[in-house]
Write a protein that binds this DNA or RNA. Structure first.
Lengths: 201, 201
DNA sequence: CCGGAATGGATACAGTCGTATCCTAACAGC
DNA sequence: GCTGTTAGGATACGACTGTATCCATTCCGG
């Protein structure tokens, strides 16, 4: 076995190059040759480490999901809050684009989302994270209701679904510069106040 | 002047063909030749009535906006309610995909939205309607607050922005089959109850 | 030290893309 | 009826696409 190379590392570099193109110029600008150029390698190398363009695309979406997951956990840990509201605020805040990298990732995510509407393979990869997020938050909120932190007439599943949809919609408006990040955060806080009662965070 | 032809009518047919492709197979499947085939004409005809592919794309987005506008007005008129809540419910209900055609249009809209993130010309066309909608609803809600229909501590602009973002986010989840139309409507009603107080519609 | 697997450079292939060009009907005004 | 503009059929161009193939390295295990 000559010239052993770390395949995972190579694939990671290529996937990152793909996401860089997708987030700045859109998925339609992603081609095997463009990825090769962006990663500074030859076309053959891209072909060598990914059998297909499809496989490459799916790898990009998987990576995007992993990044979002990392951001959520990181933010939840950083805020350090263990209150239900703290968890919700951290997760929703991690969905909104809050710095340059997360904004780029959100753009790529948006491109993938619309591609998934007409590509079942991508759709299958893409639903994993949102579903996991919704289940996780629903469980947390159900526990909070048990503990009496929120009113018993609130349905945790409906609340979480609404808040997640809200965060996604706000992300869209932030990406299209209709709204600033600060304004979006304000709206989320506004709704959290409504849910938990107006408590200072 | 020989063989006079209704240019607007021809362009409309081509635009509709474009949207049919975009909503079922995505914007990336839209090509001049595909549009020609879908409309049952030759490639030359498509070129003849639209100078550019770009012009064709912009025409598609304009048409999507017009359809949405029509739907909003139609639903508002059909519900016949003049109450602030009725207007809000009608508009938000018109944003959600509620039948096959509006679902197809929502898919096309999503495709356009992500394309607009990397295409300034499309972005310019696409922001018109959402902004108009937000301004219209904000004015309505401000009037409602004046009239005492909602609590005076609610900020109309924030409320409207939140509700529109919510409707957009719910549309996404309905399109990706994460949620049914009924479930999405329920969530919207839930939030409207929160805003106006639990009144029967 | 050498045969063979791992890695990747160079190039080719068959399609498809947007756009441009050439040419022929069709028909209103003179 | 001739003319000139309008409407479109047919075809071509060069660029780009994903994928496949051929071939030269590199270097580990025997």
């Amino acid at each position: 076995m000559p010239r052993q190379v770390d395949h995972d590392e190579r694939r990671r570099r290529l996937t990152e190059a793909l996401l860089r193109i997708a987030s700045t110029r859109g998925l339609r600008a992603v081609s095997m040759r463009e990825i090769a150029a962006e990663a500074g390698v030859s076309l053959r190398v891209v072909q060598y480490y990914f059998t297909n363009k499809q496989a490459l695309l799916e790898s990009g979406l998987t990576e995007l999901g992993a990044r979002m997951d990392r951001r959520v956990k990181q933010r939840a840990a950083a805020s350090g809050e263990l209150t239900p509201r703290g968890v919700l605020a951290a997760v929703l805040g991690a969905i909104l684009p809050f710095d340059e990298q997360s904004e780029l990732d959100s753009m790529a995510w948006t491109a993938y989302y619309s591609a998934a509407l007409t590509d079942p393979a991508l759709a299958a990869v893409g639903v994993t994270l949102p579903n996991a997020l919704e289940d996780f938050l629903t469980a947390r909120l159900a526990a909070a209701r048990q503990a009496g932190d929120i009113a018993p007439d609130r349905d945790p599943r409906t609340e979480v679904a609404g808040l997640l949809a809200l965060a996604n919609g706000l992300t869209s408006s932030v990406l299209s510069r209709q709204r600033s990040h600060a304004a979006a955060t304000e709206i989320i806080d506004y709704y959290l106040d409504r849910l938990f009662g107006p408590a200072a965070t």
